[in-house]
């Protein structure tokens, strides 16, 4: 499910069945010109991943809106902010929280997170339109889905 009006109607009726939250972690910046294209591209790809995972497991997984932060910010501070999101989520019966990100800076702070970090190595900047890119994303998303399922 997604955090949209229509899905939330179903969610309210079926809360007990939805026990897994997925949060995309997205760094934002405008000042590092040479990274700009790459960072924006990664956000697009990450959202595609998230969408694929959600599509396969829509009945049990709630896709949380992207957690966005300044790329230059202190991950420890952001980690605390993220924890308050997790607290909000865990007030409901959520047994599993997964964070998905291309940002390697989270790896160091993994222990402090209230869930499982899935870090994906960055993909080369390229067109999103090619069907190979889509195929690849589809394939990887399936594997991530399997990983999530192994926690159930």
């Amino acid at each position: 499910m997604k955090w949209i009006q229509q899905d939330m109607m179903t969610y309210k009726e079926a809360k007990d069945y939805i026990d897994t939250a997925v949060i995309p972690l997205v760094p934002f910046q405008l000042s590092q010109g040479q990274e700009l294209k790459k960072n924006a591209f990664q956000r697009e790809v990450l959202n595609l991943f998230a969408g694929e995972i959600e599509r396969d497991l829509a009945g049990r997984v709630l896709l949380i809106p992207e957690f966005t932060y300044l790329k230059t910010s202190d991950r420890q501070v952001e980690g605390e902010r993220l924890s308050s999101w997790c607290e909000e989520i865990q007030k409901q019966p959520f047994n599993h929280i997964f964070f998905i990100t291309f940002d390697p800076a989270w790896k160091k702070h993994e222990q402090a997170l209230a869930g499982t970090l899935i870090w994906l190595p960055a993909m080369a900047t390229d067109s999103m339109q090619t069907s190979e890119t889509h195929q690849m994303i589809r394939g990887q998303a399936q594997e991530m889905g399997e990983l999530i399922r192994s926690y159930w």
Binding site: M1, T10, Y17, I18, R55, D56, L57, A58, G59
Partner: peptide
Amino acid sequence: ICTHLGCV
């Protein structure tokens, strides 16, 4: 699409 809550 599963007729329960929509998984594949």
